[in-house]
Design a protein around this nucleic acid. Structure first.
Lengths: 160, 160
DNA sequence: CCGTATCCATTCCGATACTG
DNA sequence: CAGTATCGGAATGGATACGG
């Protein structure tokens, strides 16, 4: 029986990180959670993935202490998925990913995306994260990597 | 026919980054390349993955303009895989991943891993990247996230 | 030493139907 | 709304064996 090699016990911390959050959906779920989403349906609608795999992903993220389930928040008898401190700690990773894309990708359209914001990744210059009770948890400003000069103007044109 | 959803044209730059380098091996290959590895066999021995999938990974990384193939470097008639500027640009992502692991993971052993170094992720305090001709390309110092006090001492004990 | 080709097992993912 | 159950297709990953 051939088992996929696990990187959990790898000596390299990078490999261990990848083992925990190195797949697509996990990081996108965390991104959404950082943007304030907390309900199963919110993630599902936002990410457009099948419910079964979302359920599995959420479960493993909870297992890895990246998310926690809170009993409720509105009236419903269901669960909220909230980030733990460890989960909030991936924020710099997301910023790094975003800046890399910004620096080296052609944007698929003319929109000068600067950072994700609460409404589905539309242009903002800074990303700020607030806790439920309004405290500022984290903030990041765009520090653009040098890019081929005159490539395109930034934040000049509105999304068409 | 059901196709796996591609994130290439996703409006979110984070999603696009993940589409490019969001899998295990790609990032680990880039890590190795940053550490100076350039030959097929070096990657294969270091990462311990099958040669066929290494070949595929290398090819797609070249396609995505993250690696380039240089005709030769030693005498052999084969190819070197070198990082492009875009490839070197993922360095901050690796640093972020590493710091996250450092901050929130239990280390599997007592070794106070600080940053990857050229010899298979053994403890160093800073990671510096040099080009082939000796110029310093990039450097990062460990900026540790707050961690439960007195957890363990850092860099006190030598790897046993 | 550097790959390519083949084969197989496992995992991933999407769609849908179903339950409470 | 919040999941669970099941299915099938696709991609991934590992172990070779093979050729330049």
């Amino acid at each position: 029986m051939v088992k996929r090699t696990s990187l959990q016990d790898n000596g390299c911390p990078i490999a261990r990180s990848l083992d925990a959050i190195g797949d697509w959906w996990s990081l996108l779920i965390i991104r959404d959670a950082l943007l304030g989403r907390r309900r199963f349906g919110e993630f599902q609608k936002s990410l457009g993935l099948a419910k079964n795999i979302l359920a599995v992903r959420l479960r493993t993220l909870v297992d890895k202490d990246i998310l926690t389930t809170a009993p409720a928040s509105d009236g419903s008898a269901y669960q909220d998925y909230l980030l733990t401190p460890k989960g909030r700690g991936v924020f710099p990773i997301l910023v790094a990913l975003r800046q890399w894309s910004e620096a080296y990708d052609e944007s698929p359209d003319d929109i000068a995306t600067i950072l994700v914001d609460r409404d589905e990744c539309r242009p903002v210059r800074t990303l700020e994260l607030y806790s439920q009770d309004g405290r500022l948890l984290s903030a990041a400003e765009t520090t653009l990597k040098p890019r081929p000069a005159g490539k395109r103007s930034r934040l000049k044109s509105a999304p068409r």
